[in-house]
């Protein structure tokens, strides 16, 4: 196995990992702090991507469009929380799953009505479409490096907020016992709205950065949502640190496994069998990993809730 290729693939894995972290961060906070299972989190990824694509085209500036899309996604997130989710906190998880599944259908149909059924493809400005040779002989796209940088920076910001601010203290307190936080006189309603909208912004940011790489289309967030759930289960529900580590691990395992598993299998079984079993087994890898971790640590790597 070529060590340079392995290095390059770990960059790819890291990029996928930080992307997953951005989505999982909001999901784990909402689940941990508000005890809400939000299936519609993937829709926020999609909304972010659509808003960014539209705003970039509208302002004719990639950076400005992206920056404007952040508060726009924040507003959408806050609206969703106030209008739809607020009534669900006291209901059991099945009701929440049903209601937020309804939101998925709602958002998928809304984007079809507003933006049409055909996928949107957006490009990158020239200054972001180049590549740099960080690994000899393997030019790496600048935009993907930017995704890694932004992802790590956002992870740092989230860490600072959660660990060193009053809001973060409330979030942590809410994750371990939200009734007590309410009883201590904290306005739990606006705290929930704020946390949810922040989560929406992170998810939206992931969608925005995904847009120029792939296509922006109805339902684009759902496949990512499943992975994000795997991430927060491995990381421990409510734990940002856990989500970060799990996201990077999942990103690495998925990327490296997808490429090297068929190659490894070819050495053991016939080529035709390896070609069939390899991709299938590779897509199962992360679930096998999740099962293995849950056997050892049933509450994930860094469980936030103690009670």
């Amino acid at each position: 196995m070529d060590p340079l290729l392995l290095l390059e693939q770990s960059f790819n894995g890291l990029q996928f990992g930080v992307m997953l972290f951005l989505i999982a961060a909001g999901l784990t906070l909402v689940f941990g702090v508000m005890d809400l299972v939000n299936l519609a989190h993937g829709s926020l990824v999609m909304i972010g991507a659509y808003l960014a694509t539209t705003l970039v085209a509208w302002t004719d500036s990639f950076l400005l469009g992206m920056i404007l899309a952040l508060p726009a996604t924040f507003v959408v997130g806050a609206l969703v929380e106030v209008v739809a989710l607020r009534t669900l906190y006291r209901r059991d998880h099945l009701d929440q799953v049903l209601a937020t599944f309804g939101l998925i259908l709602f958002f998928n149909e809304v984007v079809r009505i507003v933006w049409g059924p055909i996928s949107l493809y957006s490009g990158l400005p020239d200054y972001l479409s180049g590549h740099v040779e960080i690994i000899p002989g393997a030019p790496y796209p600048v935009f993907r490096l930017l995704i890694i940088a932004v992802g790590l920076a956002v992870a740092g910001i989230i860490y600072l907020i959660v660990a060193h601010t009053r809001l973060g203290m409330l979030i942590r307190a809410g994750a371990s016992n939200n009734e007590m936080v309410g009883a201590l006189g904290v306005n739990i309603k606006s705290l929930f709205t704020l946390v949810f909208a922040l989560g929406a912004v992170f998810a939206g940011l992931a969608g925005m950065m995904l847009g120029p790489l792939t296509s922006v289309e109805s339902g684009m967030g759902e496949p990512l949502l499943i992975l994000a759930f795997v991430v927060i289960i491995i990381g421990g529900i409510g734990s940002i640190r856990g989500a970060f580590i799990a996201a990077i691990v999942i990103g690495m395992v998925d990327t490296v496994g997808r490429i090297f598993l068929p190659v490894l299998l070819r050495a053991v079984v016939s080529d035709a069998a390896a070609d069939t079993a390899g991709p299938a087994l590779a897509s199962m890898l992360i679930y096998i990993l999740m099962a293995a971790i849950l056997v050892v640590r049933p509450r994930g790597l860094f469980p936030a809730r103690t009670g």
Binding site: P141, T255, P279
Partner: peptide
């Protein structure tokens, strides 16, 4: 090389790295 990817896959960066190698 002969590579079969997931049906409906959207991000091919890892496959592209392997391809170049």
């Amino acid at each position: 090389g002969e590579v079969y990817t997931k049906l409906g896959q959207k991000d091919y960066q890892a496959e592209i790295s392997a391809l170049r190698a």
